[in-house]
Design a protein around this nucleic acid. Sequence first.
DNA 1: CTTACTGTAATTTTATTTGATACAGTTTGT
DNA 2: ACAAACTGTATCAAATAAAATTACAGTAAG
Lengths: 139, 139
Amino acid sequence: MNSEFTIAVHSLVYLAYLPERMASSELISKNVSTHPARIRKVMSCLRKNGFVKTKEGIGGGYILNSNPHEVTLAQIYRAISHGAVKPHGCTGDPEQDCPISSNIPEVMDEIFNEAEVSLVKYLDQVTIHSVLEKIKQCH
Amino acid sequence: MNSEFTIAVHSLVYLAYLPERMASSELISKNVSTHPARIRKVMSCLRKNGFVKTKEGIGGGYILNSNPHEVTLAQIYRAISHGAVKPHGCTGDPEQDCPISSNIPEVMDEIFNEAEVSLVKYLDQVTIHSVLEKIKQCH
DNA sequence: CTTACTGTAATTTTATTTGATACAGTTTGT
DNA sequence: ACAAACTGTATCAAATAAAATTACAGTAAG
């Protein structure tokens, strides 16, 4: 899994935290500790999924377009990292005679899909607002 | 996540499938489609966790040392890929004044840990035997 | 019409994963 | 004793993936 999901959550939490709920890619990138172009890529995806609105030109940037109490990490995960639980390399070989080797790719796929469902079920219980609350409770 | 977990599951399923439940790293590597040294590395870990026994020297190899009905993918995951759900890159920066930036690493860590607990809870329902059954049911 | 922004693609750099090689240690059979 | 066939483990090289960087077209504000 690459860290775009983490970047997306961080960015949304940051926007929810700002009084104006608006920030440029440069400002967000400094908070997240990454490159502005990467923020723009992630935010572009979040915009397409309705989590934020963007404003181009002078004074532009990203503004929250959703309720932090309602947006869950599961929604963000599905938008940006769907399928990321499964590792890239797969074992086995469909050409082999052995039923283990030839069928395990399909079976492991199914298992990783189900595993992801469980993971997403947990993420569905965590909202942007609840992440913000957890952060505030850090000593 | 790298694919050692997948390799471990595949290898154990393969051993469970073999009548003798014994195979060399070379034989397993061909079934899995990877390098024998990689199999030996993974199997070495499985041995340390009691899933298999190894036999060195001529006629040696790996032999199942556990009941396929009892070994779950959760046990294998914990042995070989614990912590792998969390992506490598982390966002934020503990040095910054902003509470979001400075505290999000800790909070996201916690979230990924909980997410992994959910994932492992699912894997706990899947045994080596049940994977073998799924494979047999492939058309 | 300049400035400050986003959108997006292309490129380079860095990190991770995988494959490959090597060799010491172990067991078996002769 | 010793050759053969294994595992255990470390190291190096190659492939792949992730991240950073650069570049530039498009847009809105003043």
